[in-house]
Amino acid sequence: MSSTTNYILGVFDDEDEVLHAVSEVKSKGIKIDEVYTPFPIHGLDTAIGHERTRLPIAAFMFGTLGMICALSLISYTMVFDWPMIIGGKDFFALPNWIPVTFEGTVLFTAFGLVITFCISNNLFPGNNVEPLDLRITDDKFVMAINLDKNKLGQDEITKALKSSGAIEVNVK
C-alpha cells in the first residue's frame, strides 16, 4: 500500500457484521477498496463487487498442457526414438501410459495453478508488505476505503462505518 493515499480503515470484530456492513456501506454510495480478514468469508468478494476468478480456467489449461506434454514425451521415446517390444504389446501401448500421463496432468495443473495464483495476487518471497493493521491476521476484519476514490468526505465515511458496526475507525 502506498503511503501517499489516504485510507479510512473500519475495524470490525465479527465476520457476519463485516459482511453485513459491506452492503450497508455500499448502499450509501461509498466505494469500498478492499476488506482484509483473518480467514475467508463466504460471499464477501461478491458483496464487495470483485469479479469471479478465472483460476479454474487456468487450471484446466495447465492440465491439458500437462497431458499433452506427457503423452508426447512418452510416445516420442517409446514409439519413435527407441521403440522396443515390452511384454508383447504394441509400441503404442496406450493403457500402459495412462498412469504417467495422469501424473503429468496433475503435476502441471498443481504447479501452474499455484504459480498463477501467486502471480495474480502479487505473492512472492521477499515481498515485505506493511499490513494496514497488524490484527488482520489475528481476529479483526478491516474494511479499507480509499478517500481519493470517494466523493464523500472523511467524516461522513467514518459515520457510516460506525453506524454499520465498526468498533474503531482509523486513518492511514
Binding site: P40, T53, T109
Partner: peptide
Amino acid sequence: LGWTGSAKTWARYEYMSLILAGISTPLVLS
C-alpha cells in the same frame, strides 16, 4: 510471501484450495 488477507486473495485462495483438493483426491488414489 507478502500475504495481506484481502477478500480478493481469499476468494481466489479458496478456489485454488478446492481445485488442488479436487486434483489431489485422484492423485492420492493413483
